[in-house]
Design a protein around this nucleic acid. Structure first.
Lengths: 221, 221, 221, 221
DNA sequence: GATGAATGAGGCTTCATTCAT
DNA sequence: AATGAATGAAGCCTCATTCAT
């Protein structure tokens, strides 16, 4: 009957949902208790406090993200294919774990209070960034990517294009009067995101489209 | 001394700050009272409830955004210049009013509960989207922009690249071990954002960079 | 119907009783609420916390003690009479406000945590000590008191003889199998206390009782 | 490694410390568990409950006190020497086991709830009181002590003068602005305590100091 | 015998809001 | 118009103790 590990995981799972749906401040320990059907104190037995519980939720989410990143196999990829894969996977990741978006929004409100303390979380990104750097270098060597692209900046752009879309689905739906949760909308967005990223990397300013008749300046820098 | 309107504005200003710093759930009416040095009932006199107060804050933020959009003069611009201006201004807007980001994050958590009710807010975007559509059309006609770009989607991309950066400054700083609030970082990011957007619009897949020696496929679909 | 001041005093009165009966840790805010028939939050409206409430109770008790001390008129008294009065009043004070004893016991457990912060409380004793010093000086000048008595030490002795008796009434009753709360016991104790104090002050070691036949040393230093 | 008795004693020792430092209500079973590094059930195995554990602590303290009393050898002493010895030892006992003071303060708060049940504790005092009675009788016969002194009352006075000092060290230090834990202060106090007690016993009201010039009444009734 | 998971009751405190003056 | 007293519901957390393995 007793299964400590399962109980702990159940708490974590339901807490993850509660924090995602209501944010850190809106989440209710009592609600987690109610849904877990565990004694309230058990939560404090396993996790020291609401803060610690949230940190555990965050760490779990990051752990999954990291596993996902590691299994992508960017190292071996052809540059364009690799970046595509990354952009697609990043987009899908945000779409599939909107929870994560909610956690991050909470976390940013609190100035990264919880993440800051977690060594595990801080160690999630370096490997990915190195993969991207390698892809960029190879792309540049092969002449298919522009040079001078910062991998962190690129990662942020990739993230941004997906994250923002999913994070703001509700407000966008209201503001633009369309339903941004529809399958079609999402797929269209995914294509555009990949397009934006690859265009940026492949764009050759000298070969750029030019005004048909009169010459304008094509660059704005 | 008594100036009803000024008092109301003071409440609104301080509430805006409180909601931005703590999120909807974290914000405290009592704290607003304390900082405003007004009587608590006055808040309930001017703004029915915490919800209504937050709605008022949101509306004020949207009103300012709309004014900003209207004064940009995109209509008359050259397409590339216009989009640049839009991207730059959007980026700066997010950077200058991070409050707004916090409101939107709260709002998205609650499924756009407050925005949904506000007619004023829903009417903010149409004009802007039309401006973008016009810029895109002109750019296409002039042969400088690709065709088939959806203005809403483009707007979302533009927003995303700035919003995400500012929204996640704290977590990025922790995760990547750099200070993303530094002036230099922000300027660099702005350049990249504009570059990404213009590259996307100007990119000509047929004229794309190609692998130096062996021919690879250049498209990624 | 509303009477803020009375409400506040009612809370204070009942809190005083609760803290006295159960000690700081044993006292229950909920019990105070129940007995006061006020809303729980009202307690926090007037007194910031349980700690602050206890501090308020302590300050009230000290204020009363100080008033009592000031109205004794030790200054004008004949030395023996003055010290008698002081001993009697001190004894009666402990007997009448056993609450105070409980507060002090709590306070000593917490290393004077609350008293330490209260300026009011720290300023209670100086005047009294000066009165005692004056009495001792006059008694010495008149040749009725021994010399070299430290007023603080004397005050502690006076306090001790009463405080200890009342503080330990329960345990003494059990240990010695007598009821130490009886009127007769208390009066007898009072007489003894005064006797002890005055004997100490008046005792002349050279005039001391000496062994009837053989000479023993009378001092033990 | 397993040594049931030693474990039990360790629990008792640490519990004694915990109860002394925090009082009964403030003491935490979990804290004792933590510090003992024993399983929580073991505490409940050896000592039925927190109450029973406290009773055990009390009994241990009383047992030690009784042993101390028995080894003093008051029976054989010269009266003055005997009382001195008793006063000194009592004072030192309170000074050395301030724990005991804390237990008694807790106990008095609860109306001697635990002591009341313990036969062992109730049997601690009779022998001592008989020793005092004998000393007083002998002193009286020898003409060095006043007559009519009640041994229990005397014992209470002796106790009081030391107990009160140590029990209130913290509050006295704050109130009088001196450090009452200093070695010098303690020694001075000890001398005074013995002086007070012996003066009281030896004082001869007829031989009392009298006003130098004018005759005042020497009695204070 | 030994471990720590599990419990239920209750602890202090806080919240948005309304009421009496 | 303005003040702050008052409310009820809930929030997070902790306690001594017991149960299952």
């Amino acid at each position: 009957m007793r299964n400590p590990n399962r109980t702990k995981l159940r708490i974590l799972r339901i807490a993850a949902d509660e924090f995602a749906k209501k944010g850190y401040d809106g989440a209710r320990v009592d609600e987690i208790v109610r849904r877990c059907k565990v004694n309230k104190n058990l939560i404090y037995h396993y996790f020291e406090s609401k803060d610690a519980l949230f940190t555990a939720v965050l760490e779990q989410a990051y752990t999954r993200l990291r596993e996902r990143q590691q299994s992508m196999g960017l190292e071996a990829s052809d540059p364009i294919e690799g970046i595509s894969k990354l952009a697609i996977d990043s987009f899908k990741h945000w779409g599939e774990s909107k929870n994560f978006i909610a956690y991050l929004n909470s976390e940013n409100l609190f100035n990264a209070k919880h993440i800051r303390k977690s060594k595990l979380i801080r160690s999630t990104y370096p490997a990915l960034i190195e993969s991207i750097r390698s892809l960029l270098r190879r792309g540049e060597e092969q002449g298919v990517f522009r040079s001078g692209v910062d991998p962190i900046d690129l990662y942020i752009s990739i993230s941004a294009l997906g994250y923002h879309f999913f994070s703001n689905q509700s407000t966008f739906s209201v503001i633009f009067g369309k339903n941004f949760s529809e399958r079609g909308m999402i797929e269209k967005r995914l294509n555009n995101v990949v397009d934006v990223i690859l265009s940026y990397l492949q764009f050759n300013s000298r070969a750029a489209r030019r005004p048909r008749s009169k010459l304008h300046r094509a660059s704005r820098t």
